[in-house]
Amino acid sequence: MIKRRISSITLLLALFSQFAIADVVIIVSPASGISSISQKQAKRIFLGKMKKVNGKALVAIDQNEGSASRDAFYKTVVKKSESQLKSYWSTRIFSGKGTPPKSVKNDDEVKSWVSANADAIGYTDSSKVDASVVVVYTNK
């Protein structure tokens, strides 16, 4: 009986975790010299409206649609839905003003890219952070 209840609770927790928002952080390379950025700066960089922070040029690395980190990042930091984002980029692309950031598959690829490039900036689930990258923004 008790075992069955524990199994049910475990199943519920597992299901709940599917819908929980991932805890994303924004990362740069230790070589970038940047220690923090604001939410507004992060938003503008990923929307292609700002290319430098404290005089340092940065290139945003995005994640493909469907990634949990991407969903969390755009919901909590950029505050746009996928449809709003597509409409925003359609306006930019089809008037020649810019294109979306380069996109990679997942957190691991973002971390590899950022750690290897001093001018890259990306986002990842906080559990993936290690000494190869520096966290410059945490959504609180």
């Binding site: 597509k86 409409s87 359609s90 306006t91 089809f94 008037s95």
Partner: peptide, 9 residues
Amino acid sequence: SEVVDVGNV
């Protein structure tokens, strides 16, 4: 006027 043909926007 810059996106007059792009119906999605």
